[in-house]
Computed example of a mutant assay.
Amino acid sequence: MTPAARTQAAIELLDSIVAAAEQGGAAADTLIARYFAARRYAGSKDRRAVRELVYAAIRALGERPASGRAALVTIARQDAALAATFDGSAHGPAPIADEPAAAPGVLPRWLAERLAASGLDPAEQAALVERAPLDVRVNPLRGELPVIEGAAPIAGLPDARRLPAGTDLAPYAGLVEAQDAGSQAVTLAAGAAPGMTVLDLCAGAGGKSLALAAAMANQGRIIASDVDRARLARLAPRAERAAARIIEPLLLDGGREAAALAGVRADIVFVDAPCSGSGTWRRNPEARWRLTPERLERYAAMQRHVLALGAPAVRPGGALVFVTCSLLDAEGADQVELFLADHPGWSAEPLALPFGRARGRGVRLTPAHDGTDGFFVARLRAPC
Results as ranks from 00 to 15, higher is better:
I58N: 02
A38V: 04
Q179Y: 05
A224G: 10
L115Y: 10
T292S: 15
I268Y: 03
A152T: 15
I154R: 08
A71N: 08
K45E: 15
E240V: 13
A71K: 04
A27S: 15
D334C: 02
D180Y: 02
I222R: 03
A273G: 06
R51L: 02
A20D: 07
L351P: 01
Y172N: 14
L338A: 12
A10C: 12
N218C: 10
A173S: 15
T2V: 03
A348F: 01
A94W: 00
I223L: 14
V264F: 00
I75G: 09
P383C: 06
G317I: 04
P293S: 12
D253N: 07
P274T: 11
G356E: 08
L111G: 10
L327G: 03
A28K: 11
A155S: 12
V336K: 06
P367F: 12
L328N: 03
A230Q: 14
P237M: 12
A90P: 01
G318P: 02
A215F: 06
A56G: 15
T280P: 03
R162C: 08
E52H: 08
R229Y: 09
R137L: 05
A368G: 01
E257M: 00
G263P: 00
F375W: 03
V18W: 08
A26Q: 12
A21K: 08
F339L: 14
T187L: 13
G332K: 05
V363F: 02
A185E: 14
R59E: 10
A236C: 02
P146S: 03
L212C: 08
L291N: 11
P312H: 01
H91I: 04
S347C: 02
R256H: 09
A170Y: 00
R131I: 05
A233H: 10
P122R: 09
A90K: 15
A213I: 06
R39A: 10
D168H: 08
L296F: 04
T85N: 13
T372C: 14
L82A: 13
W281H: 13
A258T: 01
M302I: 04
S16P: 00
V271T: 10
A152C: 06
A301I: 03
R51M: 03
R131N: 07
S278I: 07
L307N: 07
P274H: 07
R64D: 09
P367R: 12
L128W: 02
A300I: 04
Q125A: 03
A112W: 02
D342L: 09
A19M: 11
A236H: 07
A213V: 04
H343D: 07
R256M: 01
A213L: 02
L212F: 04
I246D: 05
